[in-house]
C-alpha cells in the first residue's frame, strides 16, 4: 500500500513539468508565473504566423521521416540476423551496433562533426543530422524488432519455404506481415526520437535549423516563452499520440506472433 502511494507520487513527479505546459499555453500573460491571469488562444495563433518556425518544423519532419525509415531498415537487418544462428563474434558485433544507446550524445556529436567538417570538409545540412539520428535510433529499432522476431516461431518461414515459396517471398508473405506491427512501432519511436533530438542536431545543423534548435534559440527571449509553451503543448500531445499508437502496434505484434507481453520499450 505504501509502495503504491510512493509509485503514484513518483508518477506525479514525472508528469509535473508537462502538466504545466497547457496551463501556461492558454494563460493570458507574457511572464510564465503564477498566479494565472486569464484564458487566451493568442499564443497558438502566433505559432501559425511564424515563418521561421514552419521552416524548422518542415526540416525536422523530413529528418525524422528519413531517420525512421533508415533506422528501421538497419534494425530489421540486425534483428533478423539476431533471430538466426549464432556465429563466432555475433555478440560482439551486436554489442557494438547497440553502443550508441549508452554513449553520451555529445561524443557522437563531436566525433561526427570532426569527421564531416574537419576531415572530409563537407558542409553540414539535413543529411548530416539524418546520418547521426539513424545511428542513435538503430539500437532502439533493434530492441523493438528483437521483441517481434523473438516471438516468431522459426518454423513459420520454413513452412512457407516448404510449401514452395522462395526465400524472399517466404519473408514477404509470412515474416513481414507478422513483424509489421513491430516495424510500425520502430518507425514511430525513431520518428519521435529524431523529432525531439537536440544535442546532436545543434552540432550538425547547417544553415537551416531543426525545430529543437530553433526552440533553443527562442529560449533566450523571454517574450517568446508563451509561444514556446503553446508549441510544447502541441508537441507533447503529438508525441503522446504517436507513442500510444506505437505501443498498441508493439503489443499487437508480440501477440500476433504468439508471445506474451511483459515489458515496454527497451
Amino acid at each position: 500500500m505504501k509502495l503504491r502511494v510512493y509509485a503514484i507520487a513518483y508518477l506525479i513527479f514525472l508528469y509535473a513539468p508537462i502538466i504545466l505546459l497547457p496551463i501556461f499555453a492558454f494563460n493570458d500573460a507574457t511572464i510564465i508565473a503564477f498566479p494565472l491571469s486569464g484564458f487566451t488562444t493568442e499564443w497558438f495563433a502566433e505559432l501559425t504566423q511564424n515563418r521561421a518556425l514552419h521552416a524548422a518544423v518542415q526540416n525536422s519532419l523530413i529528418i525524422a521521416v528519413c531517420t525512421a525509415v533508415f533506422a528501421t531498415i538497419l534494425g530489421l537487418c540486425a534483428a533478423r540476423a539476431g533471430a538466426m544462428s549464432d556465429f563466432p563474434g555475433k555478440k560482439g558485433i551486436t554489442g557494438f551496433i547497440m553502443l550508441p544507446l549508452v554513449l553520451p550524445e555529445i561524443i557522437v556529436a563531436v566525433a561526427l562533426l570532426v569527421i564531416l567538417r574537419q576531415v572530409l570538409g563537407l558542409s553540414l545540412g539535413n543529411w548530416t543530422i539524418i546520418m547521426a539520428h539513424v545511428l542513435i535510433c538503430t539500437p532502439f529499432s533493434i530492441a523493438i524488432l528483437n521483441g517481434a522476431f523473438g516471438a516468431l516461431d522459426p518454423s513459420m518461414e520454413e513452412a512457407a519455404l516448404d510449401l514452395g515459396e522462395s526465400r524472399w517471398s517466404a519473408f514477404r508473405l509470412v515474416t513481414l506481415p507478422l513483424v509489421m506491427p513491430g516495424i510500425i512501432s520502430s518507425m514511430l519511436i525513431s520518428f519521435t526520437i529524431s523529432l525531439d533530438e537536440f544535442i546532436i542536431a545543434f552540432f550538425l545543423t547547417g544553415s537551416n535549423p531543426t525545430m529543437p534548435v530553433y526552440i533553443w534559440g527562442l529560449l533566450r527571449f523571454p517574450k517568446s516563452l508563451p509561444v514556446i509553451m503553446a508549441l510544447g503543448t502541441i508537441l507533447v500531445a503529438l508525441s503522446v499520440i504517436l507513442l500510444t499508437i506505437a505501443e498498441i502496434f508493439r503489443r499487437r505484434g508480440v501477440r500476433r506472433a504468439g508471445g506474451t507481453d511483459t515489458g515496454g520499450f527497451l
Partner: peptide, 8 residues
Amino acid sequence: FQSYAIFP
C-alpha cells in the same frame, strides 16, 4: 512441423 507453424 512439430509446432504446426500455422500462419496466424
